[in-house]
């Protein structure tokens, strides 16, 4: 596991630097005027109601969504010429880790090693060691040979985190890793993230509910309707989601689709 900050000589050098970022999806501006600077070793959470652009922001920061305007540099390199993908660990928002074919836990985690492996070369001893230690860190070493489909949702989320860990990155993006995860698994997850943070990794976490992760957070960024509305010390999640949108109804980008769980008549607790 690599744990060195982005540049040891400058401990506070910006790892992510987004200026005037905007993302347009299908002709509709989704993110506007977003400035975000994350320094090495910071633990930042992105909060905001559904459709506020949290996931879109993370997708823009990882290069999955092109910026319609603005500039983004990662580790001091403009995104267009950024090639050090092994420094990024990405945990996408997913229902699970399973696919159409049985897949063992170790195979999923080993695929995270591809940020460092190239071409037809077989896995080296270092590759295997990194996979084992990633499994240890999320507490699933004893399940390595099992099919991921037999794991619970929370355990599958931990597999995806181990996959991101396996490449030994120093910047992590996690998109809703605790959604639908039971408390013991959330605690296991918090333990793994704490260890990473302690080791100097930079962490950007999108979440609805912090739960056991709350004590780890250095800084909170709140998005609303595609704009940054708060950037500072951690807030209670209720502040982030409650006070900023007192109007009734939703103002997000989901066109009129209301989930059966959503109530219009009371404040939604995320």
């Amino acid at each position: 596991m690599s744990s060195s900050p982005s540049d040891p000589s400058v401990p506070d050098s910006p790892v992510i630097d987004l200026r005037d970022g905007a993302v347009v999806i299908a002709g509709r501006p989704v993110l506007r005027r977003v400035d975000l600077t994350v320094r090495s070793g910071e633990f930042v959470t992105l909060l905001g109601p559904n459709g506020s652009g949290k996931s879109t922001l993370v997708r823009a920061l990882t290069g999955l969504r092109p910026l319609a305007r603005g500039t983004l540099t990662l580790f001091g390199t403009p995104l267009e010429s950024f090639r050090d993908w092994h420094r990024l660990g990405f945990v996408p928002q997913r229902a699970g880790a399973a696919s159409g074919v049985p897949t063992s836990v170790r195979e999923v985690v080993a695929s995270g090693r591809l940020t460092r492996r190239r071409g037809l070369r077989p896995a080296s001893r270092a590759d295997r060691a990194a996979v084992e230690s990633a499994l240890e860190l999320v507490g699933l070493a004893d399940r390595a040979k099992d099919s991921v489909a037999t794991l619970s949702g929370g355990q599958q989320q931990r597999v995806l985190i181990a996959r991101a860990l396996a490449g030994g990155p120093d910047l992590f993006f996690l998109d809703e890793p605790t959604a639908g995860v039971d408390l013991p698994n959330q605690q296991a997850l918090a333990g793994a993230l704490h260890a990473l943070s302690e080791a100097g990794s930079t962490i950007v976490l999108v979440t609805h509910e912090l739960g056991p992760l709350a004590p780890l957070v250095d800084r909170t960024v709140v998005l609303r309707d595609g704009c940054k509305v708060y950037d500072g010390p951690p807030l209670a999640v209720d502040d982030a989601h409650g006070h900023h949108h007192p109007e009734a109804g939703r103002h997000d980008h989901h066109p009129g689709v209301i989930a059966p769980m959503d109530r219009r008549d009371e404040e939604v607790t995320w």
């Binding site: 990024l88 996408p92 999923v108 940020t115």
Partner: peptide, 10 residues
């Protein structure tokens, strides 16, 4: 397995 992850992995 996971297109988004693969893309971010380069």
């Amino acid at each position: 397995q996971d297109q988004d992850f693969a893309k971010v992995a380069g």
